Simulated scan of single mutants.
Amino acid sequence: MTKARFTHIGGPTVLIEFGGWRLLTDPTFDPPGRTYSFGWGTSSRKLTGPAVTAAGLPPVDAVLLSHVHHGDNLDDAGRALLPDAGTIVTTASGARSLPAARGLSAGRTTRLEAPGRPAIDITATPCRHGPPLSRPIVGDVIGFSLTWPGQEHGPLWITGDTVYHRALRRAAAGIRPGTVLLHLGGVGFPLTGPLRYTMTARQAVRLCEAIAPRTVLPVHYEGWQHFRQGRDGIERDLRRAPERIRDLFHWLPPGTADHVLL
């Protein structure tokens, strides 16, 4: 059994510590107030800053970067820490813009190894960061399934920015994750009306009913103008879900390490 520490820094940014490893997801450390362009006439303003500054981080062994082209997943301060962050794992297209990054497409695997630590196999999982046929507009995005010796409850799965879709459901069923770091928020823009670009709570319930994880850790649902469903909205929808689904959700306190058994 692995006891891991999760520190939610803000948005999609989480420091994960276990077995001597320190992994950082989607580094975002810019202060609030700036508006970021996401292309095709869409943009969003950052409303809250990180609960931990980049300078306050311990040394990081690897960064798991779901995509490189949106400021709410990789901002200027996050990009600045990459050269000192050890291994970077991201999309195949994104790796071409980052020196020495490992690029993965969905279904491909890379391994992290270091003396005295468990080897971690990282497999990219499919994401669709928007409605059907939106990939040419929104770009390549991946999630990450992490396995290592001693896991009792199944892999750790970081969904990345995605809506609920068939390839995601199939991949999740194959992974059978024990713990899910779940990107939510129901992202939307005035320009695109009712279309959503990340999962809503109702979609998350459908996913959890399909794969029955042990623990769900919601992230990336707050701190930005483009989120259409914050924690209150997520919890309101969860109240309509079966109790066994509601009980899976565990909210990470911002900036404070929380322990989870993996």
Rank of each mutant, 00 (worst) to 15 (best):
P132S: 08
R135G: 11
P136A: 04
P136K: 07
D140W: 10
D140S: 12
S145T: 13
L146K: 04
T147A: 15
W148A: 14
W148Y: 15
G150D: 02
Q151C: 11
H153N: 15
H153R: 15
P155V: 07
L156K: 08
L156P: 02
I158Q: 10
T159N: 10
G160R: 05
T162P: 08
T162Y: 06
V163K: 11
V163W: 12
V163Q: 09
Y164G: 13
R166L: 13
R166V: 12
R166C: 12
A167V: 12
L168A: 11
A173V: 11
G174C: 12
R176E: 12
P177F: 04
P177V: 07
P177K: 06
G178P: 11
L182I: 07
G185W: 02
T192Q: 05
P194W: 01
R196T: 11
T200N: 11
A201R: 03
A201P: 04
R206I: 09
R206D: 14
C208L: 09
A210N: 08
P213H: 03
P213W: 04
R214W: 07
T215W: 00
P218Y: 01
H220D: 12
G223S: 06
G223K: 06
Q225N: 09
H226C: 14
R228S: 13
R228T: 14
G230Q: 07
R231S: 06
R231K: 15
D232H: 15
G233K: 03
E235I: 13
R236C: 11
D237M: 09
L238W: 08
L238C: 04
A241Y: 05
A241G: 08
A241W: 00
E243N: 11
I245P: 05
D247H: 15
D247R: 15
L248W: 04
P254Q: 01
G255P: 03
T256V: 14
